[in-house]
Nucleic acid binder design. Structure first.
Lengths: 197, 197
DNA sequence: TAATTTTCTTATCATACATCAAGATGATAT
DNA sequence: ATATCATCTTGATGTATGATAAGAAAATTA
């Protein structure tokens, strides 16, 4: 039952019946992918959003020196993709990789159209997702502008409670915009002050 | 003719005829506002997007210490607002102020619906705007993560060519995530290397 | 025009974070 | 299990940017 999580997720947010869900996902693409698999390459057009029904993905970019910068993590029940690349049919600036062995549901424009035909709430829901995404990245900008490394780390722990234990620390440092050494020190300081995790 | 710019802008992006444009904007709200006028207050729900037909706006937030952080500038022909506040009907984290005496066209949901009824391209166009916005703020995150103060400044000059001359430097510093003093130094360094503006 | 306020520059000093390097710990493969 | 590789920690040192302060320049107000 590889679609169980996806079904639960969808039915939690829309009114789609079992029958309709089955019809919608009859030919849907689901893949079990190994750690380190790349789902999107820089320079490619992003044709899918990826629903993570199991595992963990990351979206990141490289600067001119080849240094990685993590933009977003996607654990279970998250959807990740490059919306502008998909919308404008343009080469993406980003990579998407699996951090753990994962199970991924591939969502493309066609699927969303099909779903919207079946249930009107569907389009609304995807619109909500879109606006949530905007809210999230705007908050991220504020944080990168205002907050210290320590504040950003605490916000991160709050947003992704279990990721400290699942993703390597250098990736998390990259997400926070600091070096792994600095993150290690921030954590040491917080431990002194009895901050857990 | 306070709507001249708005008309040119709209007709540049959609197929709206003169008649239809006039019908659409018969009761539209247009205001001439003085420098320092506040168009949106933190804690308010953002009910409008603001089209700047003349002048210059800024969207910013305050941290706990009351320090300002500029998220976005909006010179002529830009549209600015807080989409998530509008969409979710929630209190906004942001302020929107006039940096110069400006002329503003107020765009609300109703207007967009009305426009979409008249011309189908309209909804598409606003969708494009939305995705442009996402692309823009995502790029901003990458830059805040990867780039030095100098690189960010050069990118800023590239994005808003004339704003160095219109906005006070401390606001631009705030947008870049540095202090005014640092910006002053960055500019001095660049002047040595013969970078113009 | 003068007076006042805001903005910009420059200098000195302080600090958060980066870089480099080495050792310790933990994971993966043979 | 052993060897290998990736990751994490810690220390020493460097650097970009922040904080503070004071004067110069520009803009605003009277």
């Amino acid at each position: 039952m590889p679609l169980e999580n996806f079904k639960r997720y969808i039915q939690h947010h829309t009114q789609l019946s079992d029958t309709h869900f089955n019809e919608l996902t009859r030919n849907i693409r689901v893949e079990v992918v190994k750690k380190h698999t790349r789902l999107l390459n820089q320079g490619e057009v992003c044709r899918f959003s990826f629903f993570v029904s199991k595992g963990l993905l990351r979206l990141y970019t490289l600067d001119q020196q080849g240094k990685e910068f993590v933009i977003q993590f996607a654990p279970e029940d998250w959807i990740v993709g490059d919306r502008s690349s998909a919308y404008f049919n343009q080469a993406s600036d980003y990579f998407i990789d699996c951090i753990e062995d994962s199970e991924i549901v591939f969502i493309d424009k066609q699927l969303i159209d099909k779903a919207s035909d079946i249930d009107k709430n569907f389009r609304t829901y995807f619109d909500t997702l879109l606006h949530n995404h905007i809210r999230h990245i705007q908050k991220r900008i504020s944080f990168l502008l205002c907050a210290t490394a320590e504040q950003r780390y605490m916000e991160f722990v709050n947003l992704y409670p279990d990721l400290m234990l699942r993703a390597p620390q250098w990736m998390i440092a990259s997400y926070l915009g600091i070096t792994p050494e600095s993150l290690s020190r921030v954590r040491k300081e917080l431990a002194k002050k009895h901050f857990k995790l």
